[in-house]
């Protein structure tokens, strides 16, 4: 399915790796005492809160099937249960277990 030549794919991956490393290194490799503009610092605080939901929501609302995107009510309920557990316990394993268990229960015994 991948049509690019092999070296082009490798080039693309290396480019993605360089961009990623540059972002990760941004503040870590700055010399001590470098002043970072306040605008940038304050905006940065909200990046994770912006990107993570943008990744989560489509995966929960729609499941990509070969035929296209399908609305999935079970996933929404399971994600809500997992959110409550995450807020209440802050446990990674607890969140994962609650979300998967709810989805499996709904799939086996749910109304549709």
């Amino acid at each position: 399915m991948i049509v690019l030549a092999d070296w082009q794919n490798w080039l693309l991956i290396v480019a993605g790796g360089i961009v990623t490393l540059a972002i990760r290194a941004s503040f870590m490799v700055l010399p001590a005492g470098t002043r970072v503009p306040a605008v940038l610092q304050r905006s940065l605080k909200y990046v994770a809160a912006a990107v993570l939901p943008a990744l989560i929501v489509p995966d929960v609302l729609f499941r990509e099937l070969a035929t296209g995107q399908t609305f999935n009510a079970y996933r929404i309920v399971s994600a809500l249960v997992a959110t409550l557990v995450a807020l209440g316990t802050r446990s990674i394993i607890g969140t994962l277990a609650a979300g998967m268990a709810t989805l499996w229960l709904l799939k086996w015994w749910g109304p549709f």
């Binding site: 809160a49 993570l52 989560i56 994600a79 959110t83």
Partner: peptide
């Protein structure tokens, strides 16, 4: 049918909660 792909949003969910 095991829907293991649902683990991906769940991992992000547990991260998002600490970010909020």
């Amino acid at each position: 049918s095991w829907s293991l792909d649902f683990a991906v949003p769940l991992v992000f969910l547990s991260l998002a909660v600490t970010a909020l």
